[in-house]
């Protein structure tokens, strides 16, 4: 399935570059490591031959559009459902010049986790994903088979409830062990689509600040996080950061201006 979509992506990209409708294309290409494709810009039709779409294409492309739509010319970008949610949020937050973006929604069956170049089953965030639609897009490719939700209903937050069901001290210990591993590499912040502040209020090196960094960062995403799971995926220390965001998502209630 991804192979067919890949073919269509390449041909559509070539078409749009040739006609001048766009000046560059944002998608993935094979990376340095096996099964680890990287986001890339493609500026001419020949380059489009390198466009790669497979089940290892996990990195969000939406965040690159902030800078891309500031440049002259239009960018064609291929977005999976979760990525269109992220882009929609960025548009809402005035970070994207919508006219400079041409968005093609692409079909997604869920991404696969990779460890040392080998497949390790569906990514946790894909396992519980219910996003099969494209809140913002101009066109669709290969979206007929998007339903692959494995887990539905309240089971989707099973990871969160498992932690909730332990007692307070156990929870504290659980997070102390995990957060002590944090090296403040900031990868989670850098990959997060809704983390786009010019200057991060949490810059700094204080030792216990690692804990506050994650509490505050998760909290800043309250109501904005699109549950893409990238933060946990990119953490080099394997901290399940998405649990914090999902806890907030699970209980999120918009502000009700009513008694």
């Amino acid at each position: 399935m991804p192979q067919e979509i890949n073919k269509k992506m390449r041909s559509r990209a070539r078409e749009m570059l040739a006609s001048g409708e766009v000046t560059q294309v944002l998608a993935w290409e094979a990376g340095e490591f096996p099964n680890y494709p990287a986001p890339a810009f493609f500026k001419d039709e020949t380059a489009c031959g390198r466009i790669l779409y497979d089940r290892f294409c996990t990195a969000n492309l939406s965040k690159f559009m902030i800078e891309a739509t500031r440049q002259t010319g239009r960018t064609l970008v291929f977005l999976r459902p979760c990525d269109t949610y992220a882009l929609a949020q960025l548009i809402k937050e005035n970070q994207i010049n919508r006219e400079k973006a041409y968005i093609i929604g692409i079909g997604c069956e869920g991404n696969v986790a990779v460890n040392e170049g080998e497949e390790r089953g569906l990514l946790e965030s894909c396992r519980v994903c219910v996003k099969t639609d494209y809140p913002v897009c101009d066109e669709l490719i290969g979206t007929e088979n998007n339903s692959r939700t494995v887990v539905t209903g309240s089971e989707r937050f099973e990871g969160v409830t498992r932690v909730e069901e332990t007692d307070t001290s156990a929870r504290y210990d659980f997070w102390q062990v995990l957060l002590s591993r944090c090296i403040r590499c900031n990868a989670c912040r850098n990959i997060c689509p809704t983390c786009h502040c010019k200057v991060c209020i949490l810059e700094g090196e204080n030792p216990l600040e690692k804990q506050f960094f994650h509490i505050i960062r998760a909290y800043h995403q309250n109501g904005r996080c699109t549950d893409c799971g990238q933060c946990a995926r990119v953490c080099p220390q394997g901290i399940p950061l998405q649990l914090l965001n999902r806890k907030l998502i699970k209980e999120y209630k918009p502000v009700e201006v009513q008694p």
């Binding site: 937050e93 005035n94 970070q95 786009h196 502040c197 010019k198 200057v199 904005r224």
Partner: peptide
């Protein structure tokens, strides 16, 4: 204004 990204929250 130097720090503001215009997100409008």
């Amino acid at each position: 204004e130097n720090n503001c990204s215009g997100c409008g929250l």
